[in-house]
Design a protein around this nucleic acid. Sequence first.
DNA 1: AAGGAGTACAACCGCAGATGC
DNA 2: GGCATCTGCGGTTGTACTCCT
Length: 265
Amino acid sequence: MGRQPCCDKLGVKKGPWTAEEDKKLINFILTNGQCCWRAVPKLAGLRRCGKSCRLRWTNYLRPDLKRGLLTQAEEQLVIDLHARLGNRWSKIAARLPGRTDNEIKNHWNTHIKKKLLKMGIDPVTHEPLNKEVTSQDSSSPAEHFSQVDNTNIHQVKENSVALNLEENSTSSPAENSSGEESLLMDSICSDVSLMNSMWLDETPLMDMLWDSTPKLENEKLPMWEDNCPWLLDCQDFGIHDFGFNCSSEIESNALQTLDMDRKGL
DNA sequence: AAGGAGTACAACCGCAGATGC
DNA sequence: GGCATCTGCGGTTGTACTCCT
């Protein structure tokens, strides 16, 4: 009869996570890795459902997450990718290292959508609002998204540039994207093969970064203390409270980075 | 200072696809 | 092939915070 609930509803806590719960979850995952989310709450001593644990970890506790607002370049990339992929937030997030689908979805709904509407661009079709009727006559939104061609790329690029101009006129210099970011976006948008590969399911940047074995030895990991509030708690609890005596490379690398940061290297 | 409106974001819910038996 | 289970995704909701009157 029907689907089994993802967890035993009785005794399962809901709502915001406490620092103590975060600590337990982090401790468990760093020690045992990500496996069988359904079993995680029991094994970690949490009164949460596995789904909630997974969400908390992927959206908030993961050490490679960036925190804070999306940069201009990231925002433009989101707009470009949304024009191609639609509301496939996980696919979009996969192209933005350190960002989660939830974060991007929220940012889209609260910021980008409004900006596009303000500019007279339909956030769904990425067409000018006054052209909506005629564009609907010719093709459905789904068909529109599947049209991977230069015309589309240039239009998206134009929209992005327009958005950028508007942003630059109102935001502080510190918030503005650097010239390098603009060049990056320019080259991304101009590179048809790259944009087409983004459309296809090729190895995402995010997955590479999250792979358990760091491939770029000289690459510095994100500034953990800036990005992960829980690491500040780490300092309060003491590092062994988190069970950091585990063996995976990413953990030891992260600890080295943290140590280097502390020493001001 | 109070409180109502608007905003941002964390978290939940239900569905669909993937996987294993 | 059919069923059960697990995981991931996207939409939606709840709530804390900020701003304005």
